[in-house]
Design a protein around this nucleic acid. Structure first.
Lengths: 213, 213
DNA sequence: TTTTGTGAACGTGTTCACAGCG
DNA sequence: CGCTGTGAACACGTTCACAAAA
């Protein structure tokens, strides 16, 4: 199988969302052109992305909405539910716990940790905050979220890996090291702000997003 | 001037952070090799990134830490302060307002808006939440943050642009349309979770991050 | 005729490798 | 000799363009 690029995976998420909407509207078929709609995706890109995984469409007709949605759900691994541990019960941690969207998509937060004695023992979104030293494989989570201050981030990552995490979502503005076999994604808001600052400062140097077809 | 890729800008942010740390430690010079350190950046990449903007190093010696830091600060547009308006005083909005790191980097939140009557009029991080219909150019912000539910996101984007925003950071999981000349960055946490789900489901299909040199 | 699926062409970002300079 | 700066080579993602199928 050809290796799949991160951009393709992100676009699959996008297609999935569009397909869910379109299915809710009761539409039966959809063309690659309509799936592409918006921001820098061409219909050729859609067909190429999908072709890495199979032939889901019918020439002359397009794709069956529900069928394609189910295929993409399977490809993205969303047929099962994922158990998530959140470390850091501060603002970002609480925001994540409060957001219902994740459980709708199949991500269940099963444990919350912190080191602040003020927070340990308290209730957060239906879960009791536990001390980070309690982090262990017994909780049976696959995904760990790091929502701690920067200085703790690497230690937390190590602890999450030791406790069996196979994927980590990091909100701390620092590059983390994880062993091969552990997937890491970093959301760095500082970087996003700085990227905007750059774009506003040097408008002619900033590459514009590709035009839609 | 050559157009600068988004990846180069993100790496500049990274270099900047490393340089701040290293300067705090009192180190005078740093090599591209040391700047590269960690996750998938090679020393050649560092030199290439910097070469788009000038020749900041000295052959045989490396880069002067403080000088390079100042150059990158200027390149990223961080010599000035930016005024930010946050729309949506829910969990994500409050998390942003509470995070001190942004003001340290030169981003000042000068206004907070919401539509929920429960929230309008309340205090949020030293600012009074105002009704979103009050959004106007008088506030004099350059950057708008969208931290609202999905359904409101496009309208808020339009309102922000009308009120003079030149850059938008969007946390709603939807692609937004903005006019040319307005910079848009989207942080889509759902997509990050789904990307992790994919990586855990199809480990052999996921391209690994490039190894460090 | 419409729209998919895909090899080939293209463009862009990354890495190589070495000349140039300290 | 050490390390930068950079053209050239390379790798990879995107777009083109068309044969195939409905």
């Amino acid at each position: 199988m050809t290796r799949i690029s991160e951009s393709t995976v992100r676009r699959l998420s996008h297609y999935y969302r569009v397909l869910e909407e379109v299915a809710a509207e009761g539409k039966r078929m959809i063309s690659s052109h309509l799936l592409a709609e918006r921001e820098g995706i061409t219909s050729a890109q859609v067909r190429k992305d999908l072709s890495y995984f199979g032939s889901f469409g019918r020439r002359g007709l397009g794709y069956n909405v529900e069928h394609l949605r189910d295929e993409i759900r399977a490809i993205l691994g969303l047929e099962r539910r994922w158990r998530v541990a959140v470390v850091g019960a501060g603002h970002i941690g609480s925001a994540l716990l409060a957001y219902r969207g994740f459980s709708e998509q199949g991500f269940d937060v099963v444990a919350v940790y912190d080191t602040d004695p003020e927070r340990v023992g308290r209730d957060q979104g239906g879960l009791t905050v536990r001390h980070a030293s309690q982090l262990s494989a017994k909780d049976g989570f696959e995904i760990g979220v790091i929502a701690t201050p920067v200085r703790a981030a690497q230690d937390v990552a190590d602890a999450l890996v030791a406790a069996g995490a196979r994927g980590i979502l990091n909100f701390a503005p620092r590059k983390l090291r994880v062993p091969a076999g552990v997937a890491l994604r970093t959301v760095d808001m500082t970087m996003e702000f700085e990227s905007l600052s750059f774009a506003l400062t040097q408008p002619r140097a900033t590459r514009r997003r590709r035009a839609r077809e």
